[in-house]
Write a protein that binds this DNA or RNA. Sequence first.
RNA 1: GCCCCUGUGGCGGAAUUGGUAGACGCGGCAGACUCAAAAUCUGUUGCCUUCACGGGCGUGCUGGUUCGAGUCCGGCCAGGGGCACCA
Length: 890
Amino acid sequence: MEGSTGEENRSGTNDELTTPKMASERYNPQAAEPRWQAAWSEAGIFRTSNDDPRPRYYVLEMFPYPSGRIHIGHVRNYAMGDVVARFMRAKGYNVLHPMGWDAFGLPAENAAIANQVHPRAWTYDNIATMRGQLQTMGLSLDWSREFATCDEDYYAQQQRLFLDLLGADLAYRKSSKVNWDPVDQTVLANEQVIDGRGWRSGAEVEQRELTQWFFRITAYSDDLLTALETLDRWPAKVRLMQHNWIGRSDGLRIRFALVEPAPSGSDELEVYSTRHDTLFGASFMAVSPDHTLATELAEANSNLAAFIAECRRAGTSAATIETAEKKGFDTGLRVHHPFQDGKQLPVFVANFVLMDYGTGAIFGCPGHDQRDLDFARQYDLPVVPVVLPPDTVEADFAIAGEAYLGEGRMINSAFLNGLTIAEAKETVAQRLEQATMSQAPQGVRQTNYRLRDWGISRQRYWGCPIPVIHCKSDGVVPVPVGDLPVRLPDDVELGRPGNPLDHHPTWKHVACPKCGKPAVRETDTMDTFVDSSWYFARFTAPGASTPTEPETANAWLPVDQYIGGIEHAILHLLYSRFFIRAMRATGHLDVSEPFAGLFTQGMVVHETYRRDDSSWASPAEIRVEEQAGDRRAVEIDTGNEVEIGAVEKMSKSRRNTVDPTDIMDSYGADTARLFMLSDSPPDRDVIWTEDGVAGAHRFVQRIWRMVEEWTVLRADPAPPPDKSASSHTLRKSAHHTLAAVEEGFGSLRFNVAVAKIYELANAIGNGLAERPQDDRSRAAIEEAIGLMIEMMAPVMPHLAEACWRRLGHDDLVATRPWPTVDHSLLVEDTLTLPVQINGKKRGELTIAADASQVEVETAALELDIVRRMLDGQPPKKVVVVPKRIVNVVF
RNA sequence: GCCCCUGUGGCGGAAUUGGUAGACGCGGCAGACUCAAAAUCUGUUGCCUUCACGGGCGUGCUGGUUCGAGUCCGGCCAGGGGCACCA
């Protein structure tokens, strides 16, 4: 990298005639940015060695899905991560900052069908495009570690992990209910079912019982829950969401004796309850339509069978459930109440009881559960209140339309009467634990979780094949590790419904590894969330011939700072926490959590524009005019006014997207990065506005102009009269700023750090305006400009390099250590304290910083305004908070 | 329905964590430079009142704690998010 010309834009013939001396040429990011990117790349400074002795720091942004183009959200995400990476590198850490591609998934198959391209070609083409776009951002990434999850090498290791999980009983096959799209002949994830219909086919989704692969995430329910407390650098919100998702509840499993035995001969019905205190309020029992008792009774009862079939037909979508009435079918069976001799409760099959929670059966207490109450009203069952709210007279208390869920004392409950809910629960639990029924306790305390095992089977082509073989005689046989990877076939027919791997003519037919007889491969592929559950570990040793190099993974993990969208609060972040545990159990690493620090960034949102015909116009198609505070938007082509609508998340359907490459083409990457990081706190949504981008760009140009001006000024041999007296002040602001920016970057408060840099720029601008000529002032400005450049480098790395070079340095800012704060400059020798009278600010007091409290108090009472307001009377009290404030009370 | 978060100028937001509310930016207004425009620079910009000095009000509303509250506590209102037949 030689010389300094080329950063300036010398376009226009006039420039050559004017004197170049004071005419500040505009900074030209289009010329400068690629050049500095090349310089960094040549110097290899972002390549991370695993053997570097410095302390390690791993910063990672959620890797992108290669959809085709980067969008503005990526720019925000990666700009934040890059500030952290560059800052921590300057602070002396060996920083790992890698990038890869979450490359399997259904969009590639859809694109393949629509455009007659192979999913692989489509995906890798997109990766190439997006890699190029990311590189124009000037991110300090170690590209040597790049991989895509659809790389054979990556999914081979993932298959190996699967086999290890299978061996550790953390992967298993079971039959379960899934969303089945009868037209596309595939399983759909819950998110892909919209209003009960398949998102692509529009067909009504059925609940179908299918044999699927699962990961046993529930083996870690308790650990996943309790370890949330250790994640003190995660947003409380995300921890709370995971807490609720895992959903621990402590209750009692209770066995009720059947009055007459079930068809199977069983003489009991087991339920689960967290409100066993309300046992005396029970008025019915209800089992799920999928409960074995329901199934066996239905064999001899066609009405019941019809009822069960009806329940199954009803969808499970949120909308369906919300409107669904509570329905039941009286089986005619009865149970004995455990505490009330002679009391019998009817057993219903009810549509609102879930099979996969607790035991699939409940006792209904209408007084204190809304669903039970709705049900009881429907079928005229008794409603007995057993919890009396505080300060309520029993005679006045009745349950009408709403169940009572609050605190209180027990009534109508024999030996429980007068107890609190907690006491009653304990008493009931103890009694039922001691009661014996068929030689076992009638009640057992049990902790339940809402969390379900993770179904990972997908009937799709573009994913990681599940490496097992089904053999008629040997059952499920794992593919031997030596035979991995199970490769995806290239020739695949995607147009027709169903699983492409299943109807491939030859792919699935193999010999059983055990007996050698003909067998078939598993044709399901893995959920793409599996791919993203361990990629951060792979980055630590991306070329390893095993999934990880355990020592290397242990040295780098957990990720020190992970940054991404809140939409993954549960899915990806919970799956990754499971995977770390599973990989630990199978010896691939030995850490307890994947991400020590998590930051969830806000979205980028934009105004919407709507034409008269209610079609949407994109920001590129309109021009916003502003007159006397009124804003109106006009379509450029037609001149028609369009309506300015709400600020919303950028989406294709609203057409309110902006293409980051357009911004970078016209303003440069530094402007885009600066705009993304200034103004809005990073965890909140940022509104994309033309004015905001232009403002950021103005700052970029202003910095460059300042540096230009300074290089001229400091070389000026004919000094104008020196008026500067502020060198000390400038040095102080520079070091104050440094301390604040350091704090801001360290705590990811980029907007505050940027504001502090602006303040310093203003101070330097004032300094330049004074045309400083004495050595001290010149040195102060030289120092302040240098510090400013080093501080802004994490945000605007290209501009920083250009300025640094312009000032005559020949090293790269990217390789410089973070400057050290001179703390002696942060100490003030005099302070200006606000003086309050009766809590209202009335004046100021300037006094030596080391003045004693008495001196401050005395000086405050001497102030004109204080004397005037006291008017001779003595103050009741004078509060002096050192270095903060004085408050005179009278 | 349950749980959680957030309410500060025209706008995005800052506020040393209980101590000068409105840093910084955007927008507005006025001015300089220019034949003119763009670019740039300077000043100004919470609201009310006053010729001015000054004074009053002000962080969603309301009550409280405190010498002092944007910050802490209670009640309400509004907006946003998560979960949702989980017994």
